[in-house]
Design a binder for these strands. Sequence first.
RNA 1: GCGCCUAUAGCUCAAUGGACAGAGUGUUGCCCUCCGAAGGCAAAGAUAGUGGUUCGAUUCCACUUAGGCGCACCA
Length: 551
Amino acid sequence: MHLLIELRRALAHACGLQESLKDIFIEPPPEFLQESFDASSRIGYLKAGKASGKKPLEWAEEIKRTISVQTIADKIEVHPPAYLNFRFNRAALSAVVRQALEEGGDYPKISDARPMGAPQEVLLEFCSANPTGPLHFGHARGSILGDTLKRIYEHLGTSVKTEYYVNDVGMQIERLGKSLAARYRQKILGQADFSVPEDGYLGEYLVTLAEKLGPSLDPENFGQFSDLAKKDLLAAIEKDLEGIGVGFDRWFCESDLHKDNRVTAVIERLRSLGFVTEKDGAIWFETKDSSKEDKERVLRKKDGKTTYFASDLAYHQDKFSRAGGLLINIWGADHHGYVPRMKLGLAALGLAAERFEVILVQMVRLMRNGQPVVLSKRSGDYLTLKEIAEEVGNDALRFFLNSRSPNAQLDFDLEAAKKKSSENPVYLVQYAHARIVSIQREKEARRVHWPQENSKPPFELEEDAKSRLLVVSLAFFPEAILSCALRRSPHYLTNYLVDLARTFHNYYETHPILSEKNDQLAWARYKLCEAARLVIANGLGLLGISAPERM
RNA sequence: GCGCCUAUAGCUCAAUGGACAGAGUGUUGCCCUCCGAAGGCAAAGAUAGUGGUUCGAUUCCACUUAGGCGCACCA
């Protein structure tokens, strides 16, 4: 078992919180205690201790007396207000390194992460941009968040499916077809003066597509043009996402819901449950709870067409029926007003609210050298995801967008992200990896060989402060992953990796390996560096970022 | 007007009601006859304002100020 998870279990047991290891918090001690302690916990006072009526400090003392950690810690101290500080013993620290080396690319293997709060099953829906144009930069954050969460949950043994909901019917798609038909008249039928409808799509991508079409299409058949545009744009979207390492298990088309009449079926279901009224020729969803603001919404317009809201209810009913666990949707913050409406609709359908979760990702403001990038939407031109990804590179893009919690706005400076220098934290991390690989390369080149390599005796870790700090940092890797899973944000991992890289660079300055005369020491350092490399590579892998061997 | 999100170091960002609020970058000064100086060490530098709840508030509540977003028979 991994060191900090073992500590969690011991703490949970002593607090009487066996069933919920997620309520135990373990963190690195503050700087002024780092020489004496390796890990620190505020234990479970609020969850378990407060009810006992004891003061925080008394409670902590009691936990200290009852906790069973003799095998991993050689010192425990209580610090006010209710901290328990631990110093790990040598065997436990050696085990951290050994475990990392043994598990390699799978480190940390966690056999059952559920007690720590990881869900058993998740259906993640994200991106879901309308196929009416190429993905723009605004779609990047949610896409990268969704993909990264998928990687993190999968690592924890959660069964994860990802899904892209394609809004391929409705007024916007009609506009798209009309716009393409207009371009077709201009480019293929020689009607250069024919104009694109005022509310149509003006982007150059439709011109390019029109030019590729054969001469035998009927420009009045908008549906045909809608289909052509849709298909072309979806392919482009898939390709752009692939470019930033994002893929989906399923592309769910709204049109499929209509084919089976499932949208009208959901309206009828709501009607039979008494949530429907008719007014002004339209069919409305009406909540029984009059205290809600969002109590009336149109399900079917007076022209007989159903609304997006109705489709979405049908879609979610479908998701609820085929997936067993959490349904997590990642939406742009501009959809926040839609969340209560959705929840009311799902509640009316009797679908379990606790399975439905929305992560709202706030806007990213694009900057260039400290100045906001001004976008002109008038001509239909905007910064596409592809352009930005190609300009700054996938690694920097993913690292930056994952470095802040989703519900906080983010400034993304193109020039800063592009700099292949220390100004960009992703390079600090990648550099640490490349540096370690370089040591390994150098070892081969110099034909350095230590007797311990063949006999495989357990290596003896050094116990100086910097070595301890590095090993303990490695031990915190599982905690960083669990924080991401629990709080639905990968920024704990990006921050962790920056810390780890820094700790490594610091260690490296004072711990020579290839030039170390003492074979024992050299060997132990070499293995510790390899363990650090593994953690960095695995961490970057979870973020979808490369771990370069040379830079 | 109503609602949602945000406000922390010069800049970009962390911090689960608990310890002396942390990183990166920028500024200043040091460190390469030594495995990658894309690095390390050191210094200076922050909770928007006013109240409240609490043993304890960056965190919760109220108000103020500032920014972003939303309030469709669009999706």
